[in-house]
Amino acid sequence: MGRKKHKKNKKEKNEVNLKEKLTEVLELPKEIVLNVPKLTIMGNTDIMIENYKGIVEYEENRVRINTAIGIIKITGSKLTIREITSEDIMVIGDIISLEFLR
């Protein structure tokens, strides 16, 4: 069983590598092909995350968002979610820091 799983993991990794290479060669948008979040930050007030998975924590001065590459942590003050759909989330407020937690 364990062996099989290992094999599968390896296969997946290979697939990812192949995909990554292919997208680079073909210049395809990475966030779509590789399921990687796309972040758009405007100044220190607006941040838009496309292709996210879900909210882990939401408070006035801390927002944590789950994505395919791990958790993105936004700290700041007066943070509000301007808009949220199943694909993207827009957080506005005074952003102090942005962290990527693995």
Binding site: R82, I84, T85, S86
Partner: peptide, 14 residues
């Protein structure tokens, strides 16, 4: 919020 978004309910100004 997560359940709402998963069910395609649009939320804003949270």
């Amino acid at each position: 919020i997560n359940i709402c978004t998963r069910r395609q309910i649009l939320l804003w100004d949270i």
